[in-house]
């Protein structure tokens, strides 16, 4: 069911589902089934709509964002278009980001960017897939705007004091993607090779791109 549209499985992490989910009929799981069936009975949606939507989401993973980042590392003009208008730059390479506006921010030797949504869990899901649990957690959302350097250190990412931290609180209609710094020693690499260094976490800003 999970067709990876980007033909790049390097970024797909697989974790076990929560043990109590699909095999136990909890109150809210019963509610999901009931609401879905009521909407199908009423002709609001079809079972096929739901199936296709789930498949579409399964097909989205951080490989999409990684492709954009690798392109930006290779093509300065593309990077500039991407920083000016992220949504258009995504469309340009065939990535649909939906109606929300994509803002791309770039890490440099003087600025490190990181993304959070303190109000809910806004996330560039069209480019990274569904967010990890920690991104939606109270601890991450509370602390990232207050003590970003400490939270980043918990992820193993220590940012030097002369590099400014720029936290982006995704509070309204924009979605954010971080372009991590290109690792050294990758001078003659192809786009596909570079994309393999671009992890999901590096595009949220809690990590750097993988070193060579």
């Amino acid at each position: 069911m999970s067709h990876d549209q980007d033909h790049d499985h390097a970024h797909v992490h697989r974790f076990p589902p929560r043990p109590d989910q699909d095999d136990t009929l909890t109150y809210y799981r019963a509610m999901e089934t009931a609401v879905r069936e009521l909407l199908i009975d009423k002709g609001v949606i079809t079972a096929d709509d739901v199936r296709r939507q789930v498949e579409d989401m399964d097909g989205r993973n951080a490989g999409r964002g990684a492709k954009m980042v690798a392109r930006a590392w290779l093509d300065l003009a593309y990077k500039q278009r991407m920083l000016a208008n992220g949504s258009k730059a995504a469309e340009e390479i065939g990535l649909d980001v939906g109606p929300l506006k994509l803002v791309v921010v770039e890490n440099t030797s003087s600025v490190h960017n990181v993304i959070v949504c303190t109000l809910c869990s806004c996330y560039p899901r069209m480019l990274l897939g569904l967010p990890p649990d920690w991104y939606k957690s109270r601890n991450y959302r509370s602390r990232m705007v207050r003590e970003p350097r400490a939270v980043l250190a918990e992820f193993g990412t220590v940012i030097p004091p002369d590099v400014a931290i720029r936290v982006h609180d995704s509070t309204a209609d924009m979605r954010y993607l971080v372009v991590p710094k290109r690792p050294t020693g990758t001078e003659n690499w192809s786009e596909a090779e570079l994309a393999r260094l671009v992890t999901r976490d590096s595009m949220i800003g809690v990590a750097l791109a993988n070193e060579v």
Binding site: Q21, Q53, P132, D133, S137, R143
Partner: peptide
């Protein structure tokens, strides 16, 4: 911050859908 992750169960993906 606990670096926890889980693959979403089918019912969760359906809620999202």
């Amino acid at each position: 911050v606990e670096p926890s992750e889980h693959d979403y169960a089918l019912w969760e993906k359906r809620v999202d859908a």
